[in-house]
Design a protein around this nucleic acid. Sequence first.
DNA 1: GATGAATGAGTATTCATTCAT
DNA 2: AATGAATGAATACTCATTCAT
Lengths: 206, 206, 206, 206
Amino acid sequence: MSVTRPLARPPRGPGQTRAQILEAGRKLFAERGLHGVTTHDIAAHAGFAAGTFYLHFRDKTELFRVIAEETIELLRERLDGATHDSRGTRAAVRPFTDALVGFAEENRDLVRILFSRDSEAAAVEANVLNELAASIAENRRAQIAAGEFPAQLDPDVLAQGLVGLLARVLAWWSEDPERTSRAALIDTLVHIQISGTHPSGTHTEE
Amino acid sequence: MSVTRPLARPPRGPGQTRAQILEAGRKLFAERGLHGVTTHDIAAHAGFAAGTFYLHFRDKTELFRVIAEETIELLRERLDGATHDSRGTRAAVRPFTDALVGFAEENRDLVRILFSRDSEAAAVEANVLNELAASIAENRRAQIAAGEFPAQLDPDVLAQGLVGLLARVLAWWSEDPERTSRAALIDTLVHIQISGTHPSGTHTEE
Amino acid sequence: MSVTRPLARPPRGPGQTRAQILEAGRKLFAERGLHGVTTHDIAAHAGFAAGTFYLHFRDKTELFRVIAEETIELLRERLDGATHDSRGTRAAVRPFTDALVGFAEENRDLVRILFSRDSEAAAVEANVLNELAASIAENRRAQIAAGEFPAQLDPDVLAQGLVGLLARVLAWWSEDPERTSRAALIDTLVHIQISGTHPSGTHTEE
Amino acid sequence: MSVTRPLARPPRGPGQTRAQILEAGRKLFAERGLHGVTTHDIAAHAGFAAGTFYLHFRDKTELFRVIAEETIELLRERLDGATHDSRGTRAAVRPFTDALVGFAEENRDLVRILFSRDSEAAAVEANVLNELAASIAENRRAQIAAGEFPAQLDPDVLAQGLVGLLARVLAWWSEDPERTSRAALIDTLVHIQISGTHPSGTHTEE
DNA sequence: GATGAATGAGTATTCATTCAT
DNA sequence: AATGAATGAATACTCATTCAT
């Protein structure tokens, strides 16, 4: 008696449910943070009953962690791809920034999750920003050792600062990309990085 | 011999209880965020029973707001005092940074509360950082209008970036001030600000 | 061997839980009033855990309202059925009274809830008695206009009085139906209504 | 240095505090019922601190009981004074009703407290209405024994009904005395009592 | 796999009552 | 007598998590 009933519900297939829960999680966590969302919300938003959530994730925290890790990986690949042959050099600044902004543009929700300093979230994820900062600091240290960078500047401060700067600007921009043009955004970020954190930084970039 | 009353109460005096609750709030909010703390925790930490909390604050949110506002005010006074005669100029950078670091040094808990981007907290306070950014952006716009600053840089991006940078560095340093010396911290922050966000920034600061 | 689950659950069926909570609510509200009962009490009495209550009702007030409305509807149908063709006439008095007493007999708990003048309850329900009084007053007014009823009597006073009379008697009787026989109850109520509130009331009813 | 400070606060003298608390209690209980009022409210309304309440009354319930008992006594005296020489006779109906309405007129708050069927209140006070009903029922029984009243009518039903009628009408009228004139109110009540609950009741009252 | 009713520990909040001052 | 800060038991309501179907 029942006919194929093409419900609004997305397709069910292997991995589909998990994917839909992940999708709902990304959206809701970005909007309301780890706490502002219940597992019921997520399941319902994904089109499933409450219990289904637990068939795919141990708990809410695990979902968050998975999303965070996926995102970190995604970002890392993107950045590595953009700067593979010039890591840490001045020439890498623009491609790096470009990749970062591109990522933010395409993954607005993820940016908000990743760059939040939600106290809960922080406890859950081994913060991306810390990793990024560590890698930047390492580069600086190498440059200082090689005499390419003023030794009196603290590489960790520089790295934390840079990371804080990028995170806040991207989170701010992701909230409303109308706030400034992509080009102006990138130019400004590149300028700051070059002049502020690269040796003998001047405004003439290339 | 049996004591019905809980404990020898902490010292009484006018406003003591409120002050103790505020103190406990600052500490616990800094450690665990708005949600990570219960009103019971706060009251107990202050040495009082649960109900006492509500004699002094309408609810948890109000306590948070009061702490945030107090802190903002404290910081504002400090920064204003340090830069009264040179706001927005290059000469103001070092005193401004010095005051900021001094504040962070003396109020480690407050810095963590203030500079958190806790999604809950954000809903409560009109984030300090936004205010700071707005004031910085305004300065930049004035400089651009006066031809003292490259027009192709976006003042909002610059301001958001600066604020993100300072907040993250201070929060990072407040977690463990052993991470770098006060002097190196200030020098590095001054360098970045001067070269990155002031006209014709070079490394020769003074 | 140890049972984590609380108890063998009561019989399941569609709507069973809700029905059991309603049942418990009727009983407990009748006994102790809206405030004298906690949601825990109700859930426990129905054989469920505290949280289950909230799966079926928004809050205690909603349960009360639902019970009150159900009851009003039940009573209204009963009274309408009994007097359909003779509303407001003298001939309607006995069937009306009979239906009312029958209702009270079969729904002792509901009667106590409905006819309570609990200050809280009053805030919740648009009191049945007020409705009943309004409808009675309207009938009187029509009779007065038609010259069938002494104009010097106030229809609202009459209506409020009648309603107060019936409510109190039924509540009193419902507490313990042994207090008087059904027949004596009805005869007495009919007598009062006929003689007191109908034109040229005498003791010879039929 | 301090001068006589004629505060809005009422006079303090022996018995004054207690009297003021009683006064506040009458007003607030009438407005919001036993539960709707806190001891803080009452004390504050009377112009005292919270603790003072307990210097004069054991607890909230006792205050309520005292008010209820005072009121019952007041009413009893009034009714007795009005009908001293004609209790239970037809001639007593008008003076009785007149006294009752007079009491309601002068003590609107008390009427609302007394005639409420608040489930809490009922538990506290030995309801006045029950006493009144008992005394009325007794009269009826005497009349029946003397052959002055139709034996087939149940005296308790009559008494409960009468009491319910009077209570509801008075509570209704006390809420807003503009609803009907004093004269119409009394005439209507007298009519109902005479015709409905007195032997051979007709409309010719005197 | 999916369901969704049920669980029950957790938390904010209220308020009658006490007692040191 | 009066004060009013403090108490802490009581209670409504939420939500992560489980499990029989």
